[in-house]
Design a binder for these strands. Structure first.
Lengths: 205, 205
DNA sequence: GTTTAAATTAAACGTTTGTTTAACTTTGTC
DNA sequence: GACAAAGTTAAACAAACGTTTAATTTAAAC
């Protein structure tokens, strides 16, 4: 899948607008303006507004799966949790607009097809988490009986909460620009999630 | 704020549609059909589609704050966490459509005003969590230094993740109807969040 | 039973929507 | 420089949008 400069302009403009106004709240004329192209170019290159969304996902989603190779090099189960959370949050944070769009649109019953690519991504990440936990259980470091789905939901959900409530939280945390907020997510929030998972998996009571 | 039968029909129809199709994805004719009223009735009663959304929030949001009185009766800090999580999840789960709508619409930059009512709700719940944690710290049961915002985000985010990814998770958990899914949230998920918070706040390392 | 206000309706309003057209310009090929 | 293909444009398309109108029905008050 290769695109020329103008097509990428359109895809990036669509990403910005879908993330701030939603798919239904964005018109093709909005996108054309944002990308500085004629309205007809969108249908010329992508066929329709719906197909533009499909193409956007095919273009963006493919490979931000957690890199398993890196994790394989780490022996200590606790360190492995740290590394997995760190990679996951960094990946999600650098594609935060895409995650915002997917989260909203895939939660609406109208656009079920879109969630297929997202589904594969979630299944892969779920498998990675499962294997990390299982390894820790075998080593005797982690308690058994915790459903990886719950831990995955906790990590995913906590991160997404910071995306969906960006304004509220940025205000509450007294952070005054987006960069600093992104940095907070990759440091303080990441550390929090790491500690939370480790605490839960080694909790005695 | 009092509404007649027909107005409530419209508000409930709007709630169902906004939650499944989004505000921008729902037309006033959709709402009129769903509520079995004439299109003009919506503007007659509520003024406009935007004002319908405003009115809907004013009507729905007011009081599902965590009941502080009940919590005050509990001495043990760990039990208090359990009670707080239980009340919060039950409240959010019984108003899950509203939470879905607010989460989506308040995350879009177009509709910032809407988030004001939601903001107050979050601030109140944040304060409740803070006081429960602080009490536990004073009792020497909880570790100090955990930002209540992070714990609130974790609880909120984990719950909302189950709303936003309803289809995916219902499938993954081999649950085959919505009631059972709602029940899973009020039992297994609630217990998971309770354990997670307690583990974190009593974690040694 | 008449009067007055509220409720309800089908039809029409002017915009905006996504999409297509047909004319025009640019680009690369021989 | 002629030709064909690709790129680009303003204008027009029908359909859907939120909203308003004007006519009609219902309900309540006297």
């Amino acid at each position: 899948m290769e695109f020329n400069e103008k097509q990428i302009d359109i895809l990036l403009a669509a990403e910005r607008l879908f993330a701030t106004k939603g798919f239904d709240g964005t018109s093709v004329r909005d996108i054309a303006n944002e990308a500085n192209v004629n309205v007809a170019m969108i249908n010329y290159y992508f066929g329709s507004k719906d197909k533009l969304l499909d193409t956007f996902f095919e273009w963006r989603v493919p490979d931000f799966m957690i890199n398993v190779d890196e994790l394989a090099l780490i022996d200590n189960a606790l360190d492995k949790i740290d590394a997995m959370v760190d990679r996951s949050i960094k990946s999600m944070n650098s594609h935060r607009k895409l995650y915002h769009i997917i989260t909203i649109e895939s939660s609406l019953k109208q656009r079920m097809l879109i969630s297929e690519a997202f589904r594969k991504l979630k299944l892969h990440n779920l498998e990675v988490i499962s294997s990390v936990i299982n390894e820790g259980v075998k080593q005797g470091v982690f308690k058994d009986g915790y459903d990886p789905i719950l831990i995955h939901s906790m990590m995913m959900g906590t991160f997404m909460n910071f995306q969906m409530n960006h304004c509220f939280l940025q205000d509450q945390l007294h952070i005054d620009n987006d960069e600093e907020y992104a940095n907070y997510i990759e440091t303080t929030l990441t550390e929090f999630i790491q500690k939370t998972i480790k605490a839960l998996l080694t909790y005695e009571k």
